[in-house]
Simulated assay, not measured.
Amino acid sequence: MSDILLVHGTSHGAWCFRDLIPALEALGHTARAIDMPSHGNDTTPVADVTLDSCAQSIVDALGEDTVVLGHSWGGFPITRAADMAHETGQSKIARLIYLCAYAPWDGYSLAEMRRAAPRQPLMKAVVKSADGLSYTIDPAQVRDAFYHDCPEGIADFALAHLTPQSIAAQETKINLGDGHRQIPRSYIRCADDQTIPPEFQVTMTKDWPAADVYEMPTSHSPFFADPAGLAALIDYILKD
């Protein structure tokens, strides 16, 4: 069985995997989640958050032969973490799994990739902070953006935990190294995603081997919409 590290997306934290962790453990895996800087219980000021500091938090959490799953924006820091671990001789990642995540293009920031998509459904819900350092999601639009197919109460639970997202970290261009290229990778598309257009998820994986790309019929939050199904799919990927 595998050691699985779960990495959250924009404005989320380790809390979003509360239902997925026990589902993975029931299948015999060890599963854990982290808060990247300024998210969840991490108290780093949002002004101090960088792409590299987010990636370093992942490197610091690696065990031996850890499977790293990144959700949404988490695709950027997990890729950078794989390169950083390789650069320092600490490559401990067994596989990268991108869960309806940005699979980075060399020389692009996440914001640039988002703008390259055919449409940007999340932007209507984005509320930029007065100081320009971060953004939040309009509470009235949180459910439609992230959780429209999730059980009753999930949107309220999330609203109590969502935090401001650093803009600078998502405007930082990534320079891809050799580390992540040497690691097996898989992608899970979400066909009813209202945050990252499903068709753009297809674009990001158009050159990937078909055997490494999977799909779920859910929203942007399969860890709440169908945690058992997501756990079963991850288990299948790791046994394949």
Rank of each mutant, 00 (worst) to 15 (best):
R80V: 13
C150R: 03
V59F: 03
E199C: 04
T203P: 01
L5D: 01
L122T: 00
H180P: 03
C150M: 04
I34N: 04
Q56V: 10
Y214D: 00
I196H: 12
V142G: 00
D178M: 10
P197L: 07
Y98M: 05
F224E: 11
S53R: 01
Y135T: 05
A23W: 03
A210P: 00
A33C: 05
E199W: 03
G28Y: 10
Q120P: 00
S166R: 13
I154Q: 00
R143G: 00
R18E: 07
E199R: 02
P37G: 05
R181H: 13
I154S: 02
E64Q: 15
D42F: 01
P209S: 04
S91F: 02
T50N: 05
E25D: 04
D144R: 11
I183N: 07
D192F: 00
K206V: 02
H180L: 10
D60V: 01
A33K: 00
A116V: 09
I188K: 10
P45F: 12
G28C: 06
F157G: 07
R115G: 13
R119F: 15
D48F: 09
P118C: 05
A117S: 15
A130D: 15
S221T: 15
L133K: 05
M123A: 14
V126T: 08
G75K: 07
P22W: 05
P45D: 00
I237Y: 06
I174H: 07
P139Y: 11
V46D: 01
I174Y: 14
I137H: 12
N175V: 15
L238T: 06
A33F: 01
M123K: 13
V127L: 14
S219T: 15
D138H: 14
I167R: 06
V49I: 10
I188C: 05
M84C: 02
I188G: 01
D60K: 02
I4S: 07
L51F: 11
G177R: 11
A210E: 08
Q120L: 12
H12P: 05
Y187E: 06
T88D: 10
H8A: 10
C150Y: 03
A225P: 03
P217G: 02
G229N: 09
K239F: 03
V202G: 05
Q165K: 12
T88Q: 13
G177A: 02
I97T: 11
F17L: 02
L238Y: 06
A47Q: 07
A130Q: 11
T44R: 09
E171T: 08
T66W: 01
H29E: 10
Q182V: 06
A101S: 15
D178C: 06
A191Q: 12
S166E: 14
D207R: 11
L96F: 10
Y102I: 08
Y98T: 00
M36T: 01
A225Y: 08
P151K: 03
